[in-house]
Design a protein around this nucleic acid. Structure first.
Lengths: 248, 248
DNA sequence: AATCATTTGTTCGATTTCGAACGTACGGAC
DNA sequence: GTCCGTACGTTCGAAATCGAACAAATGATT
């Protein structure tokens, strides 16, 4: 079985890496390495959640589906976090879709084993709850951001958040996709991306996004990026603020 | 001391009422009745949180403050819930303001006593975490709602949510206030309120809002109201869906 | 190599929403 | 009862955003 071979020292997920060896011992034997292929729906809105996925590499969007069929991103998870948060709360049903935006890998643990581990390790429980709080902070800030900030700032924020988790400067990303994430229409993203492009902050051709000036993007984002980042760092340590960069 | 006189049978808060007597025994002796006067800031963004407030009557908004000084509502709590959620997660700092919108009363318990009670009562811990998940659902849905739904629908939703917690059909509420809650400008609310007014769903004069046609309002809201309500009912029971109505 | 189906990015007019200024109504003080 | 300070709700032009149609580019297929 592959799960018996996983060593904590080789783990890239920030939550798992932060565990003391005694707490890791509750989880490690039950973890199973799985792929996160592009566009996979890990959990579906309204559906059951029978496992938590600690993300090792890649990026996954948490999406609300509205009555008209449109989807809006409420949060992002990467190597700093996990999928299946509802299980941490003791529930087993998802209100949202979890969809892979940048392919990667994860370590999976079933609901029963997770709950046994959380009951046996107060430190593990506390850590996962701190992550849940950080995620709530992200969702909270995003809601205000959606209400008040213009598309251009929000796009810069989204690109920075993705960049933090991607681990590379170039990745596949279409305007249509970003428009859906931000809850705006495609032309709006095209205009905003054009501005960032002409300013030299990004280079964008045919579905391939390259971050060329990260400090410039950080100047172009609204404060929401920094607010969320600081909250992650406060609750989970500086590593959570740039998960992919520190995982290498 | 007033806290020793509180009987569970007299409690109007939905979370406290749902506890089994054995679990109530962990909390009851530490609860202290407090007032929630209009406009009081119970917790301030960035500040410490040293107690949880189980709301008995009234309504409290959870607000994000943005760099430009504007505030946007991310969630609402009433007799179905509590303030100081960060303590349930094991943290003690608030990312948001909690401000009283409709005056009322609450039962307060200090952080240390709460944590002792949660450690001693798995059922209490589970209940509070389910509330936290329901609140996360509310914040999540609100974020998507902010991004995609027009002011008129969102106003109807907000009025229904307030009505659920107010326990009365008439309450004090200005356009300016509602505009801030929704993250839009005042004229937008005036136009939307005028439409609802002419349709006979509400009656609005000089800062006094009266709900005159609740079924009509439920037809005028976006789906977000029902989505959140169902999630509260699923996680916390039907009582949480109309907290003030069932508390009497 | 040329064609075609598909996806992508841009342009356009229409609608919504914004920010500031205007006129109006309330409530306390004298 | 009248004055005055304060807060309120509405109106306006300006800007941002929307939804639909258009144009361009890719890559699979023949």
């Amino acid at each position: 079985m592959s799960q018996s071979t996983i060593q904590q020292s080789s783990v890239r997920n920030g939550l798992l890496a932060a565990l003391a060896p005694a707490d890791w011992a509750h989880l490690g034997p039950h973890l199973e390495a799985v792929e996160l292929p592009f566009d996979q729906t890990v959990h579906a809105a309204g559906g059951p959640v029978d496992a938590v996925f600690f993300i090792e590499t890649g990026m996954v969007s948490i999406l609300v589906t509205l009555e008209d069929g449109s989807q809006v991103e409420s949060g992002i998870a990467g190597p700093e976090g996990l999928l299946g948060l509802t299980l941490v709360f003791g529930d087993s049903r998802s209100l949202t879709d979890a969809r892979v935006q940048l392919e990667g890998t994860a370590l999976r643990i079933g609901a029963a084993a997770l709950h046994t581990a959380m009951d046996g390790s107060p430190a593990l429980r506390a850590l996962l709850l701190r992550y849940a709080l950080a995620f709530l902070g992200q969702v909270t800030q995003s809601g205000a951001c959606n209400a008040r900030h213009p598309i251009e700032n929000r796009l810069a924020r989204w690109l920075l958040t993705a960049h933090d988790r991607a681990g590379v400067d170039e990745f596949a990303m279409t305007h249509e996709f970003m428009a859906m994430m931000l809850g705006v229409n495609r032309p709006g993203v095209s205009i905003a991306a054009g501005i960032l492009n002409r300013a030299g902050l990004i280079r964008y051709v045919r579905g391939r996004m390259t971050i060329t000036d990260r400090p410039g993007l950080e100047a172009a984002t609204c404060e929401c990026y920094h607010t969320v980042r600081h909250e992650y760092a406060r609750l989970l340590g500086p590593r959570a603020a740039a998960p992919a960069a520190s995982a290498g």
